[in-house]
Design a protein around this nucleic acid. Structure first.
Length: 270
DNA sequence: AAAGACACCTGTCCGC
DNA sequence: TGCGGACAGGTGTCTT
């Protein structure tokens, strides 16, 4: 599920259940995620959760003696349930709490990760070379324009590069480029400064709106599996191949760019 | 150095 | 109904 809004929603969903709780047990039923879950993860047992934060699409759980770094990959999800709730297929990990609840990690494709670090999490190799958060002030039109200078890469690939900016996944890359009126096949270095300003605005708007919609599913996060259907209804181009453009009625086109499906309108995007 | 391809995995859907 | 193939929200690593 996870684009950034989904990860943010998951992070907000689990935070109140984790904060101030002691981790009584970490149950690993299937250690073979993207990387094998190392035994160090059990260091967390007996320690209190001090904070739950998000950086890019990583969820960071601070235990005081180290951090859990959690990633949901393509198909991962988290939910909060009682520790004795029957497990379902692909429920790989439980983080059990003294409240009797646990955070349960489910991931059919196992592209996700659960990593332990006893150093500052931002120094971890997975996080060390990440670009700015898309919703921060550091992410501006000027920043993106300067960064794009001389790049021959497609603008879509460019904004999906996590060293440029984090959290722009395949869905929102198409969506934001449509809103900004930029063809995904443009070379990054050939897009004007003004258009990068428009693109940054579009990325921020798109992500913010999605987080807001994700928020509406927050209240029943505990009881449901936390799968929000928020984006489907608001998507302007993604998976709308052949359907009329919301702006000009021309049929939406689809093309594969760097092995990723890409959706756009040839008359609204230049 | 930069850009693109590939790999990791399971589930689902579509055409034959 | 079954089977093969394509595809799916990510991203580290390998190859050009």
């Amino acid at each position: 599920m996870p684009e950034l809004p989904e990860v943010e929603t998951s992070c907000r969903g689990i935070r109140p259940h984790l904060l101030g709780q002691t981790i009584t047990k970490v149950v690993v039923r299937e250690p073979r995620l993207r990387w094998r879950i190392e035994n160090e993860i059990y260091t967390a047992e007996g320690h209190e959760v001090i904070s739950v934060a998000r950086r890019a699409k990583y969820i960071l759980v601070d235990t005081g003696v180290g951090h859990m770094i959690l990633h949901l990959g393509m198909s991962g999800s988290l939910r909060v349930c009682q520790s004795d709730t029957a497990v379902s297929k692909h429920d790989h990990v439980d983080i059990c709490l003294n409240s009797g609840q646990c955070v349960r990690y489910n991931d059919p494709r196992r592209f996700g990760a659960l990593v332990w670090t006893d150093k500052a999490p931002f120094l971890h190799p997975l996080l060390a070379s990440l670009g700015p958060e898309p919703l921060s002030e550091d992410f501006s039109g000027d920043y993106l324009w300067r960064k794009a200078s001389g790049k021959k890469q497609l603008v879509k690939s460019f904004i999906m590069d996590s060293s440029v900016v984090v959290g722009v996944g395949n869905i929102y890359a198409s969506e934001a480029l449509f809103k900004a009126g930029i063809l995904p096949t443009r070379q990054a270095g050939k897009v004007s400064r003004q258009r990068y300003h428009d693109l940054v605005d579009a990325i921020k708007e798109t992500l913010q709106a999605a987080i807001k919609s994700g928020g509406t599913t927050l209240k029943d996060f505990v009881s449901t599996d936390g799968k929000p259907g928020y984006f489907k209804q608001k998507l302007l181009v993604y998976q709308r191949t052949g359907e009329p453009c919301v702006s000009c009625q021309a049929p939406i086109k689809q093309k594969r760019l760097n092995q990723r499906s890409t959706f756009y309108c040839t008359s609204c995007q230049r």
